[in-house]
Design a binder for these strands. Structure first.
Length: 831
RNA sequence: GCCGAAGUGGCGAAAUGGUAGACGCGCCGGUCUCAAAAACCGGUGGGGGUGACUCCGUGUCAGUUCGACUCUGACCUUCGGCACCA
């Protein structure tokens, strides 16, 4: 409350104008989108918000530029669908509800009411009849419907697995929701649990998800992140012989081999040990009586180790010997079998062959436990000495029997082929991505439509019985078990198959289920028979432009791609990518260049600025700060500049053009003004097309400045003035929809400015006839001369050399050559 | 550690390999005013010079080029992602 920034005084009342036009547009249904429209369609979607209760400046930063772009497309002649909805299920509603003793439904719906009002204050061109709210049965019944379809197709399955658990949220999480070993939502360190849960088989689509050919314009960053997340590795699964191992009774084991996965089969002759994950099934059987105690202790310790520590790559590599040996079939060597927690049970086969000479982790492990290190890929210029570190590069095969002398690349293929012939292994592909765990032990989500019957097993709820309603009266406080399990009426049901007593599944679905298909529901939000009708799907999908934050790279954006491909394969839709183009906006920061947070006290409340300066000023300032994909700091004083400019636009557009007499009109200035108009239209159009709002606004500012100058000396005629000001309003309309509508009306144009065509330009009129020719000597600028745009090279060179400011630099020196860039410069190279 | 993006005035930034700093903020000066605010006009990268001018300048160091903020290589810094994935 100390140094209050000086306040811009406006010549108009933005708040009144905002209200006036928002009401009028609403009343006229200006933003209603018809399915029967002859114009080409453009589906432009922005990621729907979570109804946290308040539309903060980050929401504005996501929504306002997106709306401006949609408006721009509309003026270009497209039938634009730019819908909005609410991602209304999820933990925060429950947590907030628990702490306040209010039902999640009440909390969510009242937040939505408030945010709807705030979204309207932004002047966004949403068709509210298409609004989607995911926590309503009209919506989530289709989650259940899709779940049944995926189940039928074998893409949804139930399995016991070591899943991620958040002790604070008291629920399992998907792998994608773990950040550095902590819960993505609350930051609590995660643990693991062995639970039976529902999964979606996203891994079955791993290869297809890596194929980005159907995506026209996605940021490389997102594609890279998805690629890394999926983590495809080509390698070989090779087994080691354990048929010689005997159990405590001296009997042979049921299993005769250990399967391992490697990407470096060329190093197979360098194997000096095997390491199994502590959780590996074979561990108890392979552990000798003598080593039992040490192994059990190690496993117990591994269990206690936190996920963060366990996953840290800096951690010391530890392990214990099981007492058993396996045989490397390629050279008949016996190697010790260890367990070690640097081997993950969830990747590959949960077992690795230890090649210390050529793997950094195995190297450290071998040093620690004094295991032999045998070089089998000779480094280029290797002096035959011991290695100080694992050698990971290429080289020639050595100590590798028949393969000696091959390059390791050749060796890779040769060994793989031989292994396959002998049946000891096969080429295979491993993925880092795991199946999508969708069960949640929480209340505020879509009930999973499954029933457990003692006689029939797992039985899907028949489609006709959907939706399985989320009971209103559940005790939703988290206990670690789903709150629905405590609801007697919900749990106890009849088996759809045999009619006997049965129990319902009490877990709910991950909310990323909701967002995996919401783009379809906007097309047909009131359809009671299907998620969306085939006719509207055909007409609108896929989404032409999607905008939103990059934080969803490997969650929502990956899930929805998978979901779409699944639907495609079931014949439910005929496209297999949901979003053709993607644009990620950056993050809006506090004035201190830090992330906004209450504890820092740098949070900006948009409502304050909207009330004083108007929605248009806030919209334009957010777009003017910098490139949209870059984000940037908010500035309480910076916005005054944008407000001042809009005020000047107001002033200019409100002037009476007839006050410009003929007496001082200057034909050159009229021509220059016309040229600038056409250049401005061109630049503004091209910038808006590519989301470069900051430079689009800058060029409109330049045009505004020019108009002010020519008004001051009355050097242009009234007609030109009217032409320029009305085009200026049209160019600005997508970004400042309220005040341009008001000025449009004041100037006697027909309602609405937002239904007009975006101005077009004429390249001939935009072309310069005089240019500034840069004259350089050895690349340094020495003079600038005004010349005709179509000047000949010879003449340009002559003018350059004749320049008195160039003369001193060329005098007495020989001109080696001159470089002429038409319309740009002449560079004289001397000596 | 690996992958990716980015380093330009006091600040946000702009520049198809061709005038570095458009546009805006802030600041300085002026007009208006009793005064201030607002508004408007002018100035504003740094050094030197009364001046016309001149030298330096886009993270650092090399390179390619007639010419590099832009391309190449190495390094430094910041941010984002992944992080024992065999």
């Amino acid at each position: 409350m100390t140094s209050r920034p000086r306040q811009v005084e406006l010549a108009f009342d933005p708040a009144a104008i905002d209200r006036k036009w928002q009401a009028r547009w609403e009343q006229d249904g200006l933003h209603k989108v018809s399915d029967d429209d002859p114009r080409p369609k453009w589906y432009e979607m922005t990621m729907y918000p979570y109804p946290s209760g308040d539309l903060h400046i980050g929401h504005w930063y996501a929504m306002a530029p997106a709306d401006s772009h949609a408006r721009f497309r509309r003026m270009q002649g497209y039938n634009v669908l730019h819908p909005i909805g609410f991602d209304a299920f999820g933990l925060p509603a429950e947590n907030a509800a628990i702490s306040r003793g209010i039902h999640p439904y009440e909390w969510t719906i009242s937040n939505i009411d408030n945010m709807r009002r705030q979204l309207r204050s932004l002047g966004a061109s949403y068709d509210w009849d298409r609004e989607v709210i995911t926590c309503l049965p009209e919506y989530y019944r289709w989650n259940q419907w899709f779940f049944l379809k995926f189940f039928e197709k074998g893409l949804a399955y139930r399995a016991k697995a070591p899943v991620v658990w958040c002790p604070s949220c008291q629920t399992v999480l998907a792998n994608e929701q773990v950040l550095n070993g902590t819960c993505e939502r609350c930051g609590t360190e995660i643990t693991r649990r062995d639970l039976e849960q529902w999964f979606f088989k996203i891994t079955e689509y791993a290869d297809r998800l890596l194929d980005f050919t159907g995506l026209e314009d996605w940021p490389d960053k997102i594609l890279t992140m998805q690629q890394n997340w999926i983590g495809r590795s080509e390698g070989v699964e090779i087994s080691f012989d354990i048929s010689a191992v005997r159990d405590s009774d001296g009997a042979a084991l049921e299993e005769t081999e250990i399967r391992t996965f490697t990407t470096r089969i060329d190093t197979i002759f360098g194997v000096t040990f095997i390491v199994l994950a502590p959780e590996h099934d074979l561990v108890p059987k392979l552990t000798s009586a003598k080593n039992r105690q040490a192994v059990d202790d190690y496993i117990a310790k591994a269990r206690q180790t936190s996920e963060i520590d366990r996953l840290s790559s800096d951690k010391e590599k530890t392990g214990v010997f099981t007492g058993s040996y396996a045989v490397n079939r390629l050279n008949g060597e016996r190697v010790p079998i260890y367990i070690g927690d640097y081997v993950l049970t969830t990747y590959g086969t949960g077992a690795v062959m230890g090649v210390p000479a050529h793997d950094a982790r195995d190297f450290i492990f071998a040093r620690k436990y004094k295991l032999p290190i045998r070089i089998v890929i000779a480094p280029i210029e290797w002096d035959g000495k011991e290695l100080g570190d694992a050698y990971l590069g290429d080289g020639f095969m050595t100590n590798s029997g028949a393969y000696d002398g091959m390059t390791n690349d050749e060796g890779k293929t040769a060994i793989a082929i031989d292994l396959e012939k002998k049946g000891w292994g096969s080429r295979t592909v491993s993925f880092r991505m795991r199946d999508w765990l969708i069960s949640r032990q929480r209340y505020w989500g879509t009930p999973i439509p499954m029933v457990y019957c003692d006689t029939c097993g797992v039985v899907p709820v028949p489609e006709a019985d959907l939706p399985v309603l989320l009971p209103q009266d559940a005790d939703f406080k988290p206990t670690g078990e789903s709150p629905l399990a405590a609801n007697h009426d919900f749990v106890h049901t009849k088996c759809p198959k045999c009619g006997e007593d049965a129990r319902r599944e009490t877990d709910t679905m991950d909310t990323f289920m909701d967002s995996s298909w919401y783009m379809m529901r906007y097309l047909d939000p009131h359809n009671e028979d299907e998620p969306a009708g085939p006719k509207v799907l055909k007409q609108w999908m896929t989404v032409d432009q999607y905008t939103g934050g990059a934080e969803h790279a490997v969650m929502h954006l990956l899930y929805s791609r998978f979901f779409t491909k699944g639907m495609h394969d079931m014949g439910l839709v005929d496209y297999d990518e949901p979003f053709l183009r993607l644009f990620n906006q950056g993050v809006i920061l506090g004035a201190d260049h830090e992330k906004m947070s209450k504890s820092r006290g740098n949070v900006v409340n948009p409502d304050d600025f909207v009330g004083k300066l108007g929605a248009d000023a806030v919209r334009c300032f957010l777009m003017f700060i910098g490139p949209w994909d870059q984000g940037g700091p908010w500035s309480d004083v910076g916005i005054n500049g944008t407000a001042r400019w809009l005020n000047r636009v107001w002033d200019i557009a409100a002037r009476d053009a007839d006050k410009l007499g003929d007496t001082s009109v200057n034909a050159d200035v009229v021509r220059d003004t016309n040229r600038l108009l056409h250049q401005t239209i061109r630049k503004c159009h091209n910038d808006l097309d590519r989301f470069k709002f900051n430079t689009a606004i800058a060029c409109l500012m330049e045009f505004t400045n020019h108009l002010n100058r020519v008004w001051a000396d009355a050097s242009i005629d009234a007609e030109t003035w009217r032409e320029c000001t009305s085009k200026l309003l049209l160019l600005l309309a997508p970004m400042a929809p309220h005040m341009t509508e008001e000025l449009w009306e004041m100037n006697g144009h027909p309602y609405s400015i937002h239904q007009q065509d975006f101005p077009t330009w004429d390249d001939d009129l935009a072309a310069e006839d005089v240019i500034t020719l840069i004259v350089q000597v050895n690349g340094k600028v020495r003079d600038k001369i005004e010349v005709s745009v179509d000047i000949e090279e010879k003449e340009a060179q002559a003018l350059a050399l004749a320049s008195p400011r160039v003369q001193p630099y060329v005098q007495g020196k020989s001109v080696a050559k001159t470089v002429y860039v038409p319309g740009r410069l002449v560079n004289v190279v001397v000596e």
